[in-house]
Write a protein that binds this DNA or RNA. Sequence first.
DNA 1: ATTACTTTGTTAAATATATAACAATGTTTG
DNA 2: CAAACATTGTTATATATTTAACAAAGTAAT
Lengths: 212, 212
Amino acid sequence: MEKTIERLALYRRLLKNQSGKGNTHIFSHQLAGISGYSAAIVRRDLMNIGYYGTPRHGYEIKALIDCLNVFFNKPEVKSLILVGAGNLGRALIAYFIKDKTEYNLIAAFDSDPLKVNLKYNGCPCYSLEKIPELIAASQASVGIITVPAENAQSVADLLVENKIKGILNFAPVSLTVPESVYVENVDLALMLEKVLYFSVHHREGEKKNGMT
Amino acid sequence: MEKTIERLALYRRLLKNQSGKGNTHIFSHQLAGISGYSAAIVRRDLMNIGYYGTPRHGYEIKALIDCLNVFFNKPEVKSLILVGAGNLGRALIAYFIKDKTEYNLIAAFDSDPLKVNLKYNGCPCYSLEKIPELIAASQASVGIITVPAENAQSVADLLVENKIKGILNFAPVSLTVPESVYVENVDLALMLEKVLYFSVHHREGEKKNGMT
DNA sequence: ATTACTTTGTTAAATATATAACAATGTTTG
DNA sequence: CAAACATTGTTATATATTTAACAAAGTAAT
Ligand SMILES: NC(=O)c1ccc[n+]([C@@H]2O[C@H](COP(=O)([O-])OP(=O)(O)OC[C@H]3O[C@@H](n4cnc5c(N)ncnc54)[C@H](O)[C@@H]3O)[C@@H](O)[C@H]2O)c1
Ligand SMILES: NC(=O)c1ccc[n+]([C@@H]2O[C@H](COP(=O)([O-])OP(=O)(O)OC[C@H]3O[C@@H](n4cnc5c(N)ncnc54)[C@H](O)[C@@H]3O)[C@@H](O)[C@H]2O)c1
């Protein structure tokens, strides 16, 4: 189910793109082509959310986007905050501040007095004490953590205290949060390690890989 | 197997950390605790690479690190390059240039003349024409792509032509490469979408989620 | 020594995910 | 209008991954 949701979010983006190009219908194998998955999995995913196409015309793009919007609770745009306006944090601010229709990044927070009260790409940076106030005012429900590993847990605790329900964590630590809070860890160093590994071991043995 | 390798890379990092703290042994449940996985999965993963602990003392940290180093071909440090010294690219440069013992980021490349010949955190930025020369000289085998989506495929093609064997791609497109090249896509916008979704739907129904 | 514990390695079962297959259906073609 | 076709929805099968279970083995306590 989790994998399906990841793909659905991708389909949604790709379909909006296709719609922008003036296309009205799409086949499972076409969506498969642009998404990088298989046609079978596309059909199965769409079946899961209860959207039905027609054998000869495939899927109607607009209707499918609507269906995905309902699934993802759009157009309601949930508010976000980001903690840690360092190198990575600022790159993310620059990226997410752009698309107001999808993401509502309302503020960044940093413990460094030199950063407080600055604006990055128009996004205000506050001190940590402002977190309760700003979250309450904006009803933000998701937080992005881009602080050093040693401070990530305390930041997570602070976010949880203030009713944040989802965390995208870039610090290379396993966060402890209540079960009701969803955490997605993005460990970029590990991802690079994985590529380094498979750049060597990929394609050796094809179907067998000697380990089991 | 893929998931196992992701975790092994994490264990390796955590164990080096533990070793630095002076610990000599560790139990599966302890490694589970700091990694965020279960003890059963830790034991199973270590079984897979053929490392054996003892019932009462658990795993000997130093020996296990050695074993993981062999598995990951360390201390041989493979060279990397990065293409696209924009907001995200520069954040990654700053991060990966730091740890010379693990990553050997030899150069960045950008099509923007204003960026060419600058240095970011000591990492030189060249024009794209220099790619063949630099890859050949450094034997770099992995490339990080942080260019806009519309240019990502042409950059990937260029890297593949120049014998890159692994790509960490941050552009939100599905790259087409020969089967012998390994690609890991990191789509940060989709990851945020996922958190937005689960910040609402997490914990609703616990074991059941209504979608079979 | 014997007993009680703890933790491992490994097997077995459960769950999750992906692939393959194909009847049903609507479309086009002759 | 019937035959040929392409594509869907869905089921069945295969693979991957996780969880659970427990005998074997070493350790500590008595
Ligand atoms: N930069 C990358 O490309 C990269 C790659 C992999 C992982 N990461 C991880 O992402 C995180 C951020 O990396 P970075 O390169 O941006 O680091 P950075 O040092 O550039 O930025 C960290 C920021 O967090 C702020 N900060 C520190 N403690 C804080 C606290 N308690 N509350 C609020 N703000 C606080 C600092 O003032 C700084 O602005 C780190 O955990 C790092 O390991 C970054
Ligand atoms: N910044 C983020 O946090 C973020 C988040 C999600 C996804 N991304 C993706 O990562 C990529 C980079 O994002 P960014 O924010 O750093 O963008 P950016 O515009 O800041 O940087 C892109 C860089 O690539 C360079 N470039 C463009 N075409 C090139 C080419 N053909 N060859 C070499 N260099 C080229 C540009 O000169 C620029 O320096 C994009 O694909 C973006 O969608 C970024």
